[in-house]
């Protein structure tokens, strides 16, 4: 596909998601109390969108991933939340 064809197919969808993300960050700012590690993880990933790297989706996923290698001794609950609590804030 040409770049224009990609834009014709996906620009409106990307525009919609970008505005949703901006509105989400505004909503968080308007709310009260401390944000947990998930907000910092999301903010840390935002500059990756503007990077010249052609693997931005992979970079964002890695920024939100547990980078450690050893199995943990036991599970505290079954769920995942989408960001790694151990990431620097």
């Amino acid at each position: 596909m040409t770049r224009d064809q990609v834009l014709d197919l996906y620009f409106m969808d990307a525009r919609c998601k970008l505005i949703e993300l901006a509105a989400f960050l505004d909503r968080v700012d308007r709310s009260e109390g401390e944000a947990d590690f998930r907000l910092a993880a999301l903010r840390n990933a935002l500059p990756l969108l503007a990077s010249p790297n052609a693997e931005r989706a992979k970079a964002v996923l890695m920024a939100l991933s547990d980078p450690t290698v050893d199995p943990i001794p036991a599970a505290f609950g079954k769920g995942a939340c989408g960001a790694w609590p151990g990431a620097p804030r």
């Binding site: 996923l61 890695m62 939100l64 991933s65 547990d66 980078p67 450690t68 290698v69 199995p71 769920g79 995942a80 939340c81 989408g82 960001a83 790694w84």
Partner: peptide
């Protein structure tokens, strides 16, 4: 393979 933040580590394991 695990969900979300656990996927990369879990896939390697």
């Amino acid at each position: 393979t695990p969900h979300l933040e656990d996927k990369f580590k879990g896939t390697r394991l």
